[in-house]
């Protein structure tokens, strides 16, 4: 699933980055690399979102958050 679809409080693991070189390279530098854990902090279903990745809060446009493919971690089933 895509990062943009995680609900607040949900944690996902980055699987893959889609998009052009510039975008992918920026996302990767910010810490969105495969196996990184991303926690959704704020997501109102539209507009930008806030996530926590590698100990930093990052605001992402919805478009950018749709380029990050994650697999959600089920509560307690890590």
């Amino acid at each position: 699933m895509i990062l943009a679809n995680l609900a607040p409080g949900q944690v996902g693991v980055v699987k893959r980055l889609a998009g052009g070189w510039g975008m992918v390279s920026r996302l990767a530098a910010f810490g969105f690399t495969p196996d990184a854990k991303v926690e959704m902090v704020q997501n109102f279903g539209r507009g930008p979102i806030i996530v926590m990745v590698r100990g930093t809060r990052i605001a992402l446009g919805r478009g950018e958050a749709q380029k990050i493919i994650v697999s959600p971690i089920v509560e307690g089933g890590e």
Partner: peptide, 10 residues
């Protein structure tokens, strides 16, 4: 051309 919105919230 859209501006990518990736920003740290310090």
């Amino acid at each position: 051309e859209r501006v990518a919105f990736i920003m740290e919230l310090p």
